[in-house]
Computed example of a mutant assay.
Amino acid sequence: MRTLHFTSPTGPVHAEITDLVIAGWTGRDAHKLQEHIDELAALGVAPPATVPCYYRAGLETLTQAPLVDVLGHDSSGEGEWVLIETAGGRFISCGSDHTDRKVEAYSIMVSKQMCPKPISHAVWPWEEVAPHWDSLEIHSEIREGGQWVTYQRGGVAAMRHPDDLIEKARALGVPKGPGLLMFGGTLAVQGGIRPAADFRVTLHDPVLGRSLSHGYTARTV
């Protein structure tokens, strides 16, 4: 078990995590999903037989640190919303499914396991965003040439709804209930998948006028 500490509009949240699950290929729109399939195919990554799919990863990969260590120069971030199930209810965070792209070409499971999974320090109670979930926006940025540039941008409506992902995960025997932390899938990138040392992700709620964000630097070792 891993205990993570968050801030929220309703007070501190202490989440006891027992299972880390990374949902993949979660696009609702077939065209947008194909865009993501194509950009990964360009890196030699074969799509799964069925979508969505779910990958397990070790709890030790979860981090809220601003600096993480990665092996080599072939990894990159992916901005995602993150669902956290606790005994006190469901919460939403944001994070990065940092992945080694070279390794991903021969084993998605290994590529997921070998990289840290940075997540934000703040969360929102599910009840506060559930009524207008599809209005939420997610975007990520990378630092290139000394400037922050847009890497991903779009609405969470482009990805499967959290309830849908949970239902499909349950049917496949994926752990559920309190203790689950699930990354919800990602968007296609602008300009092609590429490594960058500095990455930041933001989940924006235009209805309530607020954002969650997390930034980190990936240090090559």
Rank of each mutant, 00 (worst) to 15 (best):
C53Q: 10
M182K: 11
A197R: 15
E167R: 15
L40A: 08
D164M: 07
D198I: 01
T3K: 12
T26I: 10
E16S: 15
P131L: 06
I37K: 08
E144I: 06
L67E: 13
E141R: 14
R101M: 12
S211H: 06
T99S: 13
L4Q: 11
K112A: 01
H214T: 09
I193Q: 05
V189G: 13
H14L: 09
A157V: 08
C53R: 14
A196P: 10
S111E: 02
L67C: 06
A169F: 03
M1S: 14
A188G: 15
H161N: 11
L33G: 15
L165A: 10
D97Y: 02
E85M: 12
G184W: 02
V201M: 01
Q34V: 01
E104I: 04
I37W: 01
V21M: 11
V149I: 14
H139R: 15
E78Q: 10
D97I: 06
D134M: 03
L203I: 02
K32N: 14
G58V: 03
H121Q: 11
T86H: 07
W133P: 08
A49Q: 14
R200Y: 00
P175Q: 10
T86E: 07
D205Y: 00
C94F: 02
L62I: 06
D134I: 05
H5P: 04
G79E: 03
